[in-house]
Simulated assay, not measured.
Amino acid sequence: MSEVDGKSSPSVANSAAVADADMPLYGAMGMTFMQFPAVTTLSQCGAEVIVSGVPFDMATSGRSGSRFGPQGIRQASVNLVWEGARWPWAFALDDHLAVADAGNVIFKHGEPQTLVDNLEAHISAIMQAGKSALTFGGDHFITLPILRAYAKKYGPVALVHFDAHTDTYSGGSKYDHGTIFHHAVQEGLVDTEHSLQIGIRTAYTVENHPFEVLDAAWVGDYGPATTLERIRQRVGDKKVYVSFDIDGLDPAFAPGTGTPVVAGISMDCALKVIRGLQGLNLIGMDVVEVAPAYDQAEITSLAGATLALEYLYVLAANKMA
């Protein structure tokens, strides 16, 4: 495993944690994403993008197990390392973008508020160091403290959200992966006039819904090119945060998740849309709800790893433009 700051053991950069925390079960990291260097001190790291894992699934309303998502995504990424210059890109990522893996965010098992506090502080520390974040869940609740950190720095951000569910439900508990974007809107974290939800195929209250929705049937009918056209029109030149719930994909491509819903978007479509975000003002991404226990042959973990890698290529291409 690579080293970036003279320490041989990969662990989380915890200097910004606001709540003391024991190492949670499943919190240790055995490998890094894409075999990128491990980092423990952000101020001494030359990477432009910091990968972090959040092994938290205490806010799930379906099947638990996404706490193993960061481990699964990192493990599956081994299948992508050998490629060098990833198809269809004409360059190797390492030649144009420096990425490091900060391991998993630490919190007290059974105390969700320590996750909220420590994750927000961790993302804030990444941005204060002049870097952007790529975060692996964990359930979708983790996006809320991440958005709080981003909004503190940038104000309300444009959200491009892939999911089978809108996650705008108002009747859930304080820690609930189905209420995160209700709270994000109420707290002014997202610019709803420049945000979209893509792949939705479960019930929601259409009247006065705060986001533009491109549901899964619409995406299936019109395809990735038209979907990208709508995204570009909607977000414009705003700072864009991408949140990808893996159940936005059809279960044929991502069975390993807590709340699978049939008739989702294909992996081919998802990759074309992520790839097509080139040129937008991208500031961060998360991939959430990968639950390896329900997976088959690691295809869900591989889907999550591939989407994340494609996003990194887009960042590199933006940098080269």
Rank of each mutant, 00 (worst) to 15 (best):
M1R: 02
S8A: 13
S8Q: 13
S11R: 12
V12E: 11
M23R: 10
P24G: 05
P24H: 04
P24N: 04
Y26D: 02
F33L: 15
F33R: 06
F33K: 06
T40K: 13
G46C: 10
V49M: 03
I50H: 00
V51I: 12
P55K: 15
D57V: 07
M58F: 09
A59S: 14
S61T: 15
S64W: 01
F68L: 15
G69A: 11
S77P: 11
V78Q: 12
W82V: 04
R86K: 14
W87A: 14
P88A: 00
F91I: 00
G103A: 13
N104E: 08
K108D: 15
T114A: 12
E120R: 15
A125P: 12
Q128Y: 00
A129Q: 05
A129W: 01
G130L: 05
L134A: 12
G137D: 11
G137S: 09
G138N: 04
G138H: 09
G138T: 11
F141P: 08
L144K: 02
R148K: 13
A149Q: 07
A149K: 03
L159C: 11
V160A: 11
H161M: 07
H165Q: 09
H165E: 06
H165S: 11
T166M: 00
D167A: 10
Y169P: 05
D176Y: 01
H177C: 11
T179R: 13
H182A: 08
H182N: 12
A184K: 03
V185S: 09
L189H: 06
T192Y: 03
H194D: 05
L196S: 10
G199H: 07
T205S: 10
T205Q: 14
E207Q: 15
F211W: 03
A216F: 07
V219W: 02
G220W: 02
G220S: 14
I231G: 01
R232M: 01
R232D: 01
Q233N: 15
G236D: 05
D237F: 03
Y241V: 11
I246K: 13
I246N: 06
D247V: 01
L249D: 04
D250R: 14
A252Y: 03
F253V: 02
A254K: 10
G256H: 01
G258E: 07
S266I: 10
D268P: 03
R275V: 03
L282F: 00
G284S: 05
A291F: 04
Q296Y: 09
A297S: 15
I299G: 02
G304Y: 01
T306S: 10
L307R: 00
L309H: 06
L309Y: 09
L312F: 00
Y313N: 02
M320Q: 08
